[in-house]
């Protein structure tokens, strides 16, 4: 049993690695494929960890510090694992003037998470995005990939609550 589980874990690991390898191969392992490859890593692993950065650096022959410099320059990349659930808050101008500060405040009050962080129990990650283009829904929030909008802070907190509770 244990062996089978291990094997299965190994094969997912391989599968993920294959996806990253495919991206690099598509670009001929050229050093300029760094950002494309990091996108691929983040897509399959959820974040960029040191092992992955090492691997990419070696495969694309890009210096470690440069890989790190690029990975930290772009805010889309994250070096930390994300929580089980994500709440992305749009901070575009339209959303801002329609009450983003109050929303961030309410989340901080209820879950003690700042934008860009994950709650201590690993349940909730709060992220911000520079305009998701749903200005008509301002203030817009993306809960586990679903865009919702025109929410009062209280309603949002409720929605987050039920989102987290659902898998308990």
């Amino acid at each position: 049993m244990e062996l089978a589980a291990k094997k299965k874990a190994e094969s997912t690991k391989d599968k993920r690695k294959k996806l990253v390898d495919a991206t690099m191969r598509r670009h001929g392992h050229a050093s300029h494929a760094l950002i494309e490859t990091l996108h691929s890593v983040q897509e399959v692993y959820g974040y960029l960890d040191d092992d992955a950065l090492h691997y990419v650096a070696q495969e694309l022959r890009v210096p470690l510090s440069k890989v790190y410099g690029v990975a930290t320059f772009y805010h889309f990349f994250t070096l930390k694992p994300q929580g089980e659930h994500t709440c992305v808050i749009c901070t575009g101008t339209a959303c801002y003037i329609k009450g983003v500060p109050a929303i961030l405040h309410a989340i901080k009050e209820n879950y003690n998470v700042d934008a860009g962080d994950t709650s201590d129990d690993g349940k909730l990650s709060v992220l911000t995005a520079r305009c998701i283009g749903s200005c008509g829904l301002a203030p817009a929030v993306v809960l586990d990939g679903e865009v919702t909008g025109k929410l009062e802070p209280d309603t949002l907190i409720e929605r987050i609550g039920s989102m987290i509770k659902n898998d308990a």
Binding site: I35, E36, L38, H39, F73, Y74, F76, F77, R130
Partner: peptide
């Protein structure tokens, strides 16, 4: 296609 990564 080349993807940006969150840098204005």
């Amino acid at each position: 296609i080349r993807l940006g990564a969150g840098a204005f």
